[in-house]
Design a protein around this nucleic acid. Structure first.
Length: 144
DNA sequence: CTTCTCACA
DNA sequence: TGTGAGTA
């Protein structure tokens, strides 16, 4: 299929599909016309890419990791054990990032809490934190 | 009409 | 990552 159809079937813009190719995530074959020719399986590939992207992985990582997955139902199944440990490390990185952000926010809350300014109007600042007492805030919308 | 590459008030 | 140009 050509880029237009893949775009419609995946909901991903043609622009992005070409970008994915640039990043080595997709390898469409070329027609004598120069048009990209995608395999039907690329519809699934694009889904995987989107999933991995929402998992916070960079395109470079995804390019290396992509072939190590098998389509198990609608889920992504890691094939190589090497990949599993790698993703585990990635998960840990995210965890520390979250921790750092949480503490950063705590510090800011303290600073804002000590605010002592004349301006009454803009005095009230939003503290979404109050809605999420302890840690976790609403999660990003699940994968589509 | 669709796709391609390249470029950017 | 959108958008327009100028093609094939």
């Amino acid at each position: 299929m050509r880029i237009g159809e893949l775009s419609r079937q995946t909901g991903v813009s043609e622009r992005l599909l070409r970008y994915y190719e640039e990043q080595g995530l997709l390898h469409p074959r070329r027609r004598p016309s120069g048009y990209r020719d995608y395999a039907d399986s690329d519809v699934h590939t694009v889904r995987r890419i989107r999933t991995l992207l929402s998992a916070g992985l960079g395109t470079s990582v995804i390019a290396e990791v992509l072939p190590c997955f098998a389509d198990k139902g609608d889920l992504l199944a890691p094939t190589c054990s090497e990949l599993v440990v790698g993703l585990g490390k990635e998960r840990d990185r995210i965890s520390t990032s979250i921790d750092e952000l949480v503490s950063a926010r705590t510090i800011l809350d303290a600073i804002l809490g000590a605010a002592d300014v004349a301006d009454t109007d803009s005095g009230g600042y939003d503290d979404p934190t109050s809605k999420y007492p302890t840690s976790d805030a609403p999660t990003e919308p699940a994968l589509r």
